[in-house]
Amino acid sequence: MRIKGSAIVMGLYLLFLLVPIYWLVNMSLKTNTEITSTFSLFPNDLTFANYVTILTDPSWYNGYINSMIYVSMNVVISLTVALPAAYAFSRYRFMGDKHLFFWLLTNRMAPPAVFALPFFQLYSSVGLFDTHIAVALAHCLFNVPLAVWILEGFMRGVPKEIDETAYIDGYSFPRFFVKIFLPLIASGVGVAAFFCFMFSWVELLLSRTLTATHAKPIAATMTRTVSASGMDWGVLAAAGVLTIVPGALVIYFVRNYIAKGFALGRV
């Protein structure tokens, strides 16, 4: 009896999650005339023209390429600096460590709206405005603290005896870190990468403020249809659907670690 009840609850919840997304997909497969003139749960006049528009027009698909570039850069930078720091926090006590850790976390708490304007001025003055690296660095503001937090949680789970044995066996620190330690926390690294990807991919305020044309993210390109002559609902919906696809793919690959990952290694 209980199994049946829980199945109903889950069914309703998933329905609630999926209906708005379904509506977007449904709209992306209709023509604009059909969207505005008739109201139907299924496309009567199935068309892929909206997707064709996006995939053949450089000003559209470059948005995806730009987003992909700065997101990957951000993931690499965040993980590279976060790994040694997380190791230090998980293994050593040092002067000011607790304060430093909280100070790092405060950057995760900083509202992007506070930083938008200073970032714009900072990156303009060093000549990085409208480059991918500018967005990647700006997103480090909240991704690095998060990566350190997640990795530290996973690293705490690895017994210290492993480090000590490796040093006795004559491993140098870098070699031990790459050869022995990294494989042990591989799932943690995956989870951290997933979160960096996620928060960099969904963020818009900073990435829009810091770019004009060359590095403009897809999410900002989308606002174009809204102001263009009339509303191009079909293309807008198709662009929206295409921004969901990379996220969905990534989720599929990390599905077995998602729950543990969201707990930041702290269960």
Partner: peptide, 18 residues
């Protein structure tokens, strides 16, 4: 898990648009 995580990975302004 996969379906539930889906909304989390949608860019904020697309969530707004939806």
């Amino acid at each position: 898990l996969v379906l539930m995580a889906l909304p989390l990975l949608i860019p904020f302004n697309v969530v707004g648009t939806i």
